[in-house]
């Protein structure tokens, strides 16, 4: 893989990102709904002067093209603006919420692998058996129900009835974790706070399971297919002919090669996880970017929605690039 090719890919992404920025700008401005009016809520005691002053402050009184001009010039300077509702720089809000979202995405990733890879292998080895059919159908369960419904059922079962996992949040304050990176798992390891680590992982489990179950089917299918393909290769046939046990054939010879596409497809899933978790975040009271952006859309907090979508898009593009880089690395034959 050549560095020049990577640079080229990054350069190609720039106009796409710019397009995303412009689309989200018009999206928000052209939707019905006045941010200042919504901020005032359903209550009396609102003065017209006050509403005008706020509209001026938010630059909503300017013509659309001037607003776009300000937005783009600020953006090029790396300034995402101030949130209308939270009155804070959007960049800071995003920075504060992104670690929670990324941590959840990785949790989901790991859980989907733990569910899916064994299912994929067993299905491939026992292709067309009842076991194959049933376990693959099982892998599809997660993808076939709305995440919010699954999340609520999990909370009822594991938090309310069995008291095994906490119902919401990332970490109780009482555990007393000193935050360094914002990733609580990493922070608790860095500070050697093992009770915080245990608590963090417990809090992560149910939301990760909810989010990850949806991807398990994809990963299981991928593992099964590539395993089937590998098992038909000459060297496996040869290994079998040499009289190796089935276990040795599958685990020692086939698995390693079969997992390559699985790993790459998984890297791609990160983008999906990041963009798809606002529902899981809402259900589990998870303080991530998804909840922030849903709330911002409802309140017509233009700068916050714009900022969050740009970050999402950036993450998506980067995750795809990452997947391809990992892929070419494990497969020297292919050029990026």
């Amino acid at each position: 893989m050549r560095l020049a090719r990577i640079l080229e890919r990054i350069l190609v992404a720039i106009p796409v990102m710019l397009g995303v920025a412009i689309v989200v700008f018009f999206f928000m401005r052209l939707s019905p709904g006045d941010p200042v009016d919504l901020m005032m809520g359903e209550a009396g005691s609102v003065s017209p002067r006050e509403m005008e002053a706020l509209a001026r402050e938010f630059r909503l009184d300017e013509p659309l093209h001037m607003q776009l001009y300000h937005f783009l010039t600020d953006l090029l300077r790396g300034d995402l603006g101030n949130s209308f509702v939270k009155r804070k720089p959007v960049a800071r809000l995003v920075r504060e919420h992104l670690p929670a979202t990324i941590e959840l995405a990785f949790g989901a990733l790991i859980i989907s692998l733990v569910i899916a890879i064994p299912i994929g292998i067993i299905s491939a080895v026992k292709q067309h058996s009842i076991l194959d059919r049933v376990s693959m159908a099982g892998a599809f369960l997660g993808i076939s129900m709305p995440a919010f419904w699954m999340g609520i059922v999990l909370i009822l079962v594991f938090s309310v009835f069995w008291h095994v996992f906490p119902s919401h949040g990332r970490l109780p304050f009482a555990v007393g974790l000193k935050t360094i990176t914002g990733f609580y798992t990493i922070d608790s390891i860095l500070t050697g706070n093992w009770s915080a680590l245990a608590s963090t992982l417990k809090h992560l489990f149910l939301p990760s399971l909810t989010l990850g179950a949806g991807t398990a089917a994809t990963v299981a299918r991928m593992t099964r297919s590539s395993m089937l393909e590998v098992l038909r290769q000459d060297y496996i046939v040869l290994a079998r002919a040499k009289g190796l046990t089935e276990y040795a054939v599958v685990v020692k010879h086939a698995l390693r090669n079969a997992l390559i596409p699985t790993v790459t497809i998984v890297a791609l899933q990160i983008g999906t996880f990041l963009g798809g978790n606002m529902i899981v975040e809402t259900v589990f009271g998870w303080p991530g970017l998804g909840r922030l952006v849903v709330d911002a859309i409802q309140r017509r907090d233009f700068p916050l929605v714009q900022g969050a979508v740009i970050v999402y898009a950036l993450t998506f593009v980067a995750a795809n690039l990452l997947a391809d880089i990992i892929y070419t690395f494990v497969n020297p034959k292919i050029e990026l």
Partner: peptide, 25 residues
């Protein structure tokens, strides 16, 4: 949101005509 992404990702993997991942698959 949960989506069936596999087939989608073949197409999404790259901005080039066919990414290495797609080629592999």
């Amino acid at each position: 949101m949960k989506v069936n992404e596999t087939s989608v990702h073949f197409a999404q993997a790259s901005t080039s005509d066919r990414s290495p991942l797609q080629q592999h698959l």
